[in-house]
């Protein structure tokens, strides 16, 4: 026999997204240990709560971005959509003086509708997601300023609005652990969306679209409708972020929002979701968002200048994406 020995029957199981998640989780632990040693203030309950509080808005937006990115798309409008939803809540609650539940509904409905529009631009009009959501980003930023007359809308007339984010339901039952509601919402949302992604039809199609959209279409699935549904759900989640941030500031700040989309995408990428689509997880995204908050908080505690904090964030993003590239190259 002169032929080469038979190649291994099946390639070793390709490294899965789980490895990237473990890598991200390990990085988080390393950061926590490092900052705990570097500064005794770091591990104090108040600081931990501050980190979680700081994660809540970016974390929720990152969950919204995760959905879209797994389909192989991108959403640049999550930040300004968040603000637009907050403004619409302000219109309903403060301008119109309607009760709180309607304000919440306005924020979520606005988010879902705007997401649906983005989805339609992408699925029906075949506009590349980057361009469609870039357009939406600017449109929504402009509309927020127009509707609010460029001035913040305060929620002073709506009792309980600030409780949405800053109150602590957990603190009522466990007085020692006053976890703010904003954080509670983030983790509940993460649980729900983790379930949706892994256990429902919508979640299945989210992964399938990112994996091979044409194959899904040829299987007789209405890919356009599902894509629009996913963008709408993502938009509704931006509405939740809008409520959290408006509640924390007790106002809708129309000029806010730009730049949040990049932080959200960064968290998603650090968490191991592939920008090529098809793979990703909510757990990874939450870890990614926590890494960013811990890093910024820790550097601040160590009195590193804010300019350098930004530089470090950039380095982390590049390192995370490079790790993803290495993983996929090995997976072939």
């Amino acid at each position: 026999m002169t032929t080469a020995p038979a190649a291994p029957v099946a390639a070793a199981k390709a490294p899965s997204g789980a490895q990237q998640k473990i890598l991200a989780f390990a990085s988080l632990i390393v950061l926590l240990v490092f900052f705990s040693v570097a500064s005794e203030n770091f591990l104090q309950t108040s600081n931990i709560l501050a980190i979680l509080q700081a994660t809540s808005v970016n974390g929720v937006l990152a969950i919204a971005a995760t959905l879209v990115i797994i389909t192989g798309g991108i959403d640049l409008s999550v930040g300004t959509l968040m603000t637009f939803c907050a403004v619409m809540a302000g219109v309903v609650l403060t301008y119109m003086g309607l009760p709180l539940p309607l304000g919440i509904l306005a924020a979520l409905g606005t988010g879902a509708l705007c997401g649906l529009i983005s989805g339609a631009l992408i699925a029906k009009m075949k506009i590349p997601p980057f361009i469609a959501t870039l357009g939406m980003m600017l449109i929504l930023k402009g509309l927020s300023l127009v509707i609010s007359g460029t001035k913040p809308i305060y929620f002073n007339d709506t009792p309980g609005f600030s409780e949405i984010s800053t109150g602590s339901l957990i603190g009522v039952f466990l007085p020692g652990v006053p976890v703010p509601n904003g954080v509670l919402i983030l983790f509940l949302l993460a649980l729900v969306m983790g379930y949706v992604l892994n256990r429902t039809v919508l979640g299945r199609y989210t992964f399938a679209l990112g994996s091979n959209e044409e194959a899904v279409r040829l299987s007789g699935v209405n890919t356009d409708a599902w894509k629009m549904a996913i963008y709408a759900l993502s938009g509704a989640i931006c509405g939740i972020a809008g409520l959290i941030i408006a509640s924390r500031l007790n106002s809708a700040q129309p000029a806010l929002g730009l730049g949040y989309e990049l932080d959200a995408i960064a968290a998603v990428v650090i968490g191991g979701t592939s920008l090529a689509g098809g793979r990703g997880s909510i757990l990874g995204t939450i870890i990614g968002a926590l890494i960013m908050s811990v890093l910024l908080n820790g550097l601040r505690i160590m009195s590193v200048a804010q300019e350098w904090q930004t530089v470090v964030t950039g380095l982390i993003i590049i390192a995370a994406v490079y790790a993803d590239m290495l993983r996929r190259r090995r997976a072939g």
Partner: peptide, 17 residues
Amino acid sequence: ALMNDLTVAQNIFIGRE
């Protein structure tokens, strides 16, 4: 025409889960 990131069973029943 398969979805690489999905399992065998998920691929077979895509659209008819």
